[in-house]
Amino acid sequence: MTARRDFVAGMKTMAPVLPGIVPFTLIFGVVAVDVGLSPLQAVAMSVVLFAGTSQLAAIELIGRHTPAVLVVLTVVVINLRVVMYSVSMAPRFGPLGTRWRAVLSYFLTDHVYALAITEAEAEGSSVSLRWYYLGLGVAIWVAFQAGTVAGVVLGATVPDSLGLEFVIPLTFLAILVPELKDRMNALVAVVAGGVAVVGAGLPMNLGLFVATLLGVLLGAALTEVAGE
């Protein structure tokens, strides 16, 4: 049965990525409990959002008592990039039935997209993309949830005085720094970071939004100028 074969092939392709996923979700589980989420809420967030970076940002902001509206807005801004993935997969998944499209959409994350599009564009590929993609998605999903649960269990035993929530900005830093090797991105980051520091005293964490907006607009303006 080719569906099953392609599903397993997807899972196998994802396997090498998983050791990098588990520590990340483990951190989420530990810190989520640390900032005051209940174990159920932490796991529910991983199941419902299934988007690690935005989840870390959400608990960071919840820990700083940010209004719910702004937490949701931050989640949306961080996850905006998946719209690009959605555009890219649309010619392949768009013609499928509603149920398939809904399920495949749920699994549309960075790693799943990267590996799926590689297979989709490989010459002479004979796999059924939807089953292969589903294999990729289920493999990372299981690791993601297992890591969260382990983190939640572990988090209950970690004393507050360790200041473990400091792991979150370090995680963001590790994601951010490789992006800075592009000069335009570096400029955008310096401006956004600078504005965020200056605006840190603003109510409701508005500094974060002003900083992000200014950074993105600056990048867009510079791209426009460079293009002319």
Partner: peptide, 23 residues
């Protein structure tokens, strides 16, 4: 969306830097 693509490309650097720097 093709026109928005270059703008969306700056979102990760901007939002991550804005989250990290104050911390």
């Amino acid at each position: 969306i093709a026109r928005l693509e270059p703008v969306l490309g700056f979102v990760p650097a901007a939002v991550l830097a804005a989250l990290v720097a104050p911390s």
